[in-house]
Design a binder for these strands. Structure first.
Lengths: 240, 240
DNA sequence: CGTAAGATTGACAAGCGTCAAATACAGTGG
DNA sequence: CCACTGTATTTGACGCTTGTCAATCTTACG
């Protein structure tokens, strides 16, 4: 059960060996389940753990004093959550279940130990961390330089790429418009209006929380940022 | 020369051994110098390298089609630049010299090889990548949830923390207001107005590009986001 | 001394947030 | 099966924040 979903995490880079799969499974603690809206890990707790998301949707967010919060990432099965807090004494981000989900905790020290026995995995985790950085960089760029329309369009494209690697047009996004707003720094009211604009322009179709990108190419052109292809055969790893 | 500045990179986590210093120096290619405004590495180039910044200020940015650009990070001596592009076939970000600066290129494959011989360094680089993620997460939170005033105040606090670890109030920021705007997603005109507001409120003093935080505590309270202390003794590394 | 880049100021417009109300929708208990 | 309740979506009116445009002023530098 574990290995499958975790292997998928790195499938864009390289396939894992059976030994590597086992090494990852070995550092996972017993999985536990959470219900929708339940808090998996609160920001501020000390000695924070990391979590492999085995099933469901979750999100990480940072809260601001006045009650506002920024959602930083929507996680799907296979994601490693909470890693950004690893260098810190106290957790930086809150992890919340969006749908029902199952997570396996991982102690940072255990991951560090794995780095010693499996340097190739260490490199893969390093590359994955860089990918996450790029995702944040793109989002920052979109937030700073693009308007709400192109920003939301980018979000839909990114979710589509992750949910639908095969390229189907249809997808189910289990987020409220409020949550999308918290991701983009927009009010839920404005999210709603922008979604309607995109529909009116024929870029998106929508029924409830089912979204269809009617013309992905036009949508990409509209956004004006390249969609990264997280896919490069692993450069010079085992063979040094 | 190298080791000093690079060691400083990790000083918040743990001191490096002489062997580790040598290992890092060994993967560096011959350093080269750049003049202000010169492009060190353009986004889009294939097989991108990484660069240790040995001296000076540099910045990484992502361009948008219509000519706008988002500055993602201001780099000071000791930073590893360009790592986010490592998993990609083509460079994601443009690296530009802000002041005169000296950089040492590093091939991703060389770093991967170092991960095999020095797993503790691998873990340190992993943690550093997570710190960078948190920096982006904070900036994203500021951009999405805070207004221009608090956002700019946060930028000043962050620069102050990096430039002035000793806590002096005075610092020289070699950025134009235009560049600050490109970091925050604000127009240069608005940056100027906000800076004046902060001065009027007695939070900042400024002469040319010398900035003084007159009351750091009040400034921090004003922002409402915690300033991360990138300082935790390295958890379970060598002793596994 | 001349030129270019940056900083500053003002007037105006657009984008987005806020407030408030109305409407759909799902789950709950009678 | 139906009223009841809370949550999500939708719509409208209005105002603040921020961008745009254009001009002026300062500073650095050849």
């Amino acid at each position: 059960m574990f290995p499958d979903v975790l292997t998928r995490r790195f499938s864009g880079l390289t396939p894992l060996t059976a030994v590597e799969n086992a090494a990852i499974a070995a550092i996972c603690q017993r999985p536990s389940a959470f219900r929708p809206r339940e808090e998996i890990r609160a920001e501020g707790v000390s000695a924070p753990l990391m979590y492999f998301l085995l099933d469901g949707w979750a999100q990480t967010s940072i809260g601001v004093e006045d009650g506002a919060r920024q959602i930083l990432k929507a996680h799907v099965a296979g994601d490693l959550m909470g890693a950004p807090s690893a260098p810190f004494a106290e957790a930086v981000e809150t992890i919340t279940a969006v749908t029902a989900c199952v997570v396996a905790p991982v102690a940072p020290a255990a991951l560090a130990a794995m780095f010693e026995s499996h340097p190739r995995l260490a490199w893969l985790f390093f590359l994955t961390a860089q990918e996450e950085r790029v995702a944040l960089m793109d989002r920052l760029t979109a937030g700073g330089q693009l308007g709400a329309h192109r920003n939301l369009a980018l979000l839909l494209l990114q979710l589509h790429a992750r949910l639908n690697p095969l390229g189907d047009r249809d997808m189910e996004i289990p987020m409220t418009q409020q949550q999308m707003g918290d991701m983009l720094g927009l009010s839920p009211v404005h999210v709603n209006r922008v979604l309607q604009d995109l529909q009116r322009d024929g870029l998106v179709r929508r029924e409830g929380r089912r979204y269809a990108l009617t013309d992905p190419d036009r949508l990409r052109a509209f956004v004006g940022l390249p969609l990264r292809t997280f896919a490069k055969p692993l450069p010079g790893t085992a063979g040094a």
